[in-house]
Design a protein around this nucleic acid. Structure first.
Lengths: 144, 144
DNA sequence: GTTTAAATTGAAATTCATTTTCAACTAGGT
DNA sequence: ACCTAGTTGAAAATGAATTTCAATTTAAAC
């Protein structure tokens, strides 16, 4: 999804929820879309500070939660005790490979795995809403 | 794995690490094996208190970490901000189906999915050490 | 443009789980 | 029994997430 489209999606969300569009929210969304994925609140807060925006930590935190609420970002937990956010590609889902040595994160997707998940869930009478699959191991660079 | 075997595995671990076997550690292991799976530190602490063991929270916490270290328990994170522990069945791995309505947790395993995971990881040059797969959805009881 | 009501901001305080500290205590070898 | 190193548990510290609240800003109404 284009950045422009994501921005208008966020504006729409604010409107329909009776929320206001502010300078801070625009700055945070710009930086979020511009920065790489898997950012923690801390990460984004520091990036914004390094620019010269005097934005408070609480505002960054609240805004990231808004992003998640309106569907333009997704929360991730990789077990280091920090919540990370990544821009969602809407229709495209992906899972993660995480290097336990250097922390590198690689995204992947495999329709065959997704299919088996639906099957397994069905066998237990569950209907799947979402899932999380993370493979932890050693990346090529670290296994030399 | 039998409870007796798990207990001796823990004793061996303590010995080889130069750690001591104490009344508290035995009580905590007993309660851990006796109680259901997916316990948080808080859960286990309260169960022990309800018995009449005056065991400190810090001790429960440290002991659960020991269990994880020596392989008789595994840490789980289901996104509610609490670390949970479950007894590990050693050779047998399983994943989780979690009902988003009632919170019910069902365990499952599917060798075909595991196989595909290894394949996908290999395609990215990764060697897998462990993984996490959680399917969130609606259980049969809640989807009526 | 001014007023007004409601939402937002940000620094500081709070919450909550986890982890550490440290003085008193215990296990287990000598 | 003695000694040493590990253990315990209450309390304090940590760290991320969240809330509070007075000052400020937004945007709709006048």
């Amino acid at each position: 999804m284009s950045k422009a489209k994501t921005k208008s999606q966020f504006k729409d969300f604010l409107l329909t929820q009776g929320l206001k569009s502010t300078r801070q929210r625009e700055l945070i969304l710009d930086e979020f879309l511009h920065a790489g994925s898997h950012l923690s609140t801390e990460d984004l807060y520091l990036r914004l500070r390094r620019g010269n925006s005097r934005i408070g930590y609480a505002t960054v935190h609240r805004t990231l939660k808004l992003f998640a609420e309106c569907g333009i970002a997704e929360q991730r937990h990789f077990g280091d005790g920090q919540t990370r956010y990544e821009a969602s590609d809407c229709d495209e889902h992906h899972d993660h490979l995480i290097c336990v040595v250097c922390g590198k994160i690689v995204e992947f997707e495999d329709p065959r795995i997704e299919e088996l998940q639906v099957e397994v869930a069905g066998a237990h009478g569950f209907s799947i809403e979402r899932h999380r699959l993370e493979l932890y191991g050693c990346c090529p660079g670290c296994s030399i």
